[in-house]
Amino acid sequence: MGIVADVQADGLAGLEHNFLTGRVEDLIRWARSHSSWPATFGLACCAIEMMATGGPHYDLARFGMEVFRASPRQADIMIVAGRVSQKMAPVLRQIYDQMMEPKWVISMGVCASSGGMFNNYALVQGVDTIVPVDVYAPGCPPGPETLLQAIVTLHELIESGEIMRRRDVTGAGAGVHLDELQLPTSTALTIGTR
């Protein structure tokens, strides 16, 4: 009864352990935005700057992102760093498909964003023709600061729920839709039995 008495006397400050209240949704968004792991998808020049961002000077660890995952199954963000050739495009899409939802894509550099200065037969003119892109980082190559800005922007979008809302409306994203479970309506489910 002591706790109740303290709370009655001092309000929430009377609690021995503090707590916060919030919606689970917000908590998840906050957690997602602060531990989104990037996939190592280095392609060209931008990959060098991406690695430099992970280096000691720019310290990507500040954003909970220093763990570059080689396996797409463990990654949340794909940073498409560099030009995507026609030959690489199917590979890129496959890797994207192998990533778990929710997943996000940063298109790093002009080549990934629009083909850049190489408007020719060999390059995919914009990686957004293959995968949905959430944030574009401009530059050739974007410096580590630009990439960090893109990452912070993405984190804000994740935290505000903006991206997921937009995807719900447009039906965009990876295009993965689970069919609704078709259960036989006559079967009654009883708790405690199998």
């Binding site: 408007n119 949905p132 892109v133 039906g171 965009a172």
Partner: peptide, 22 residues
């Protein structure tokens, strides 16, 4: 591709009004 009668393969750049679902 490097033959002279093979087109560069340039596609026109569209700066706005592109409708892609994101």
């Amino acid at each position: 591709p490097l033959r002279k009668d093979y087109e560069l393969g340039r596609i026109p750049v569209q700066f706005k009004g592109a409708s892609t679902a994101r």
